[in-house]
């Protein structure tokens, strides 16, 4: 790996520190039984990996990880956690041997695969020398958009992005079809406890929605 990309010893130390935090958090998640702590730690995991993505210059990926992984999925998991018990059941001592072997084998295979990866920021790597280079060359004439990520996502590959938008919409639709809109809780809350959940400063009409 070249020092020009990695930025020398300091950046390497930060890399090691962030990856060590990720490792510790992952171990903690695997060993904890309290679902609330697990949800919060998975948010921490996403935030630390977002910081690490920023460090390796994947700014858009890091931003998405911070917004979706640390923000959105933590909140959704929190909502899902409230529907079930607060702690996972204790497990029998040797029930996790099989999954452990599978995980270790997959990890060894992934480590073996990294040998073939080009170094970080290698200009001769397939990603940087093929169609990626062409985009960088023709983007300014074609679209006049300074951010190549945006012009690739929104202009060159806008069919893909239309599909992604439709996927997000379909995901929302699927959840609604399975769980309902959640409006019943609004009506229920208003009917059952019109006073007790009133917050200071909120004006509410009693009997609304019943």
């Amino acid at each position: 790996m070249t020092d020009a990309v990695l930025g020398g010893t300091g950046t390497a130390l930060i890399n090691i520190l962030l990856l060590a935090i990720l490792f510790v958090v992952a171990i903690a998640i695997a060993r904890l039984r309290s679902l609330f702590a697990i949800v919060m730690l998975s948010g921490v995991y996403s935030l630390v990996s977002a910081a690490w993505y920023i460090l390796v210059d994947a700014v858009d990926v890091g931003f998405t990880e911070a917004a979706v992984g640390a923000g959105m999925s933590t909140a959704v998991l929190l909502g899902a956690m409230l529907l079930t018990a607060r702690t996972a059941k204790p497990e029998k001592p040797f029930s996790r041997i099989g999954p452990f072997i599978v995980c270790a084998a997959a990890g060894i295979m992934l480590l073996y695969a990294t040998i073939d990866l080009p170094p970080l920021g290698d200009p001769a790597s397939p990603a940087n020398s093929g169609v990626g280079l062409t985009y960088l060359q023709v983007n300014w004439y074609d679209t006049g958009v300074p951010n190549v990520v945006t012009s690739v996502l929104a202009s060159y590959r806008s069919f893909d992005t239309l599909g992604e938008t439709a996927v997000v919409f379909t995901a929302g639709l699927a959840v609604v079809l399975l769980l309902g809109f959640g409006e019943r809780s609004l009506a229920d809350t208003l009917r059952r406890a019109p006073k007790s959940e009133t917050l200071p400063g909120t004006v509410r009409k009693d009997g609304d929605g019943t």
Partner: peptide, 22 residues
């Protein structure tokens, strides 16, 4: 995309959180 993503994600949250009171 902004409308679709924010609307869909809020709908998902409402659907999940609407099943428990608070």
């Amino acid at each position: 995309v902004l409308f679709a993503v924010s609307g869909a994600l809020t709908t998902i949250f409402y659907a999940l959180a609407g099943r428990v009171a608070e």
